[in-house]
């Protein structure tokens, strides 16, 4: 599959995401924030970083970049979209996902190997995991506290749209330990931790993150 990775000014993990896409068995296509063009990709990753310097609010300016117009339109038609960290923030600001991400409750940047439980394995990004599987991948954020009103949280839980939950100490004050969610259709996933940093034994916390990139094939060819 062709998987596009968008580079915004201030993106940090776009190259790692491209690499993870390739290790996952796909062709990585670099997409540019200023282009109204998805180059015919089959899926899109919005990588981590500090797009537009996190000015105004994280993801607030990126949301209005030309490429996001295309991403929002394609997502509505079912294109698989994965937003990691800053990408998750962009998806919330774009209203592709509910809720918002605010500064960590303890006010410090957190960078550590994080245990997670994968709770929804029916998305195109998580289908190669087993339901309830516990994984360890890298978490690094300053504004990773997931918040939403109680009705929204209840709906997310009731509809099985919590994709991943933090295990152990809650690292950033996210309500109900939510680390990742999906939209109603299940094609758009936002995740605060970084699976693209956990795809090779040589570096990082292991290879538990690889499933996010191999799932695409499993979902398509199943």
């Amino acid at each position: 599959m062709k998987v596009g990775v968008v580079t915004f000014p201030g993106s940090l993990d776009d190259v790692d995401a491209q690499r993870a896409v390739r290790i996952g068995g796909h062709e990585a296509v670099a997409l540019w924030h200023g282009d109204h063009d998805l180059q015919g990709v089959d899926a899109v990753v919005l990588p981590g970083g500090f797009s537009y310097g996190d000015y105004l609010r994280c993801g607030a300016i990126s949301r209005f970049s030309p490429v996001m117009t295309e991403v929002v339109e394609a997502a509505a038609k079912g294109l698989p979209v994965l937003g990691i960290c800053n990408g998750f923030q962009i998806l919330c600001e774009s209203h592709l996902l509910p809720g918002a991400l605010i500064r960590n409750d303890h006010r410090k940047f957190v960078c550590r190997d994080q245990r997670l439980r994968i709770e929804n394995v029916s998305t195109p990004w998580t289908s190669s995991y087993a339901e309830g599987q516990e994984v360890t991948i890298v978490l690094k954020n300053g504004e990773g506290g997931f918040v939403a009103d109680t009705d929204t949280l209840d709906r997310l839980e009731g509809e099985g749209r919590v994709v991943a939950r933090y295990l152990g100490d809650n690292p950033n004050g996210s309500l109900r330990d939510i680390a990742g969610i999906t939209n109603e259709r299940g094609n758009v996933v936002g995740l605060m931790p970084h699976p693209e940093h956990a795809v090779e034994d040589l570096t990082g916390a292991g290879t538990d993150g690889l499933g996010f990139f191999t799932s695409l094939a499993a979902a398509t060819f199943a």
């Binding site: 605010i102 960590n104 004050g173």
Partner: peptide, 14 residues
């Protein structure tokens, strides 16, 4: 302003 029910870590720091 942050909504009243939303945690404001920056305000807490001040």
């Amino acid at each position: 302003m942050p909504k009243p029910e939303i945690l404001d870590p920056q305000g807490k720091a001040v």
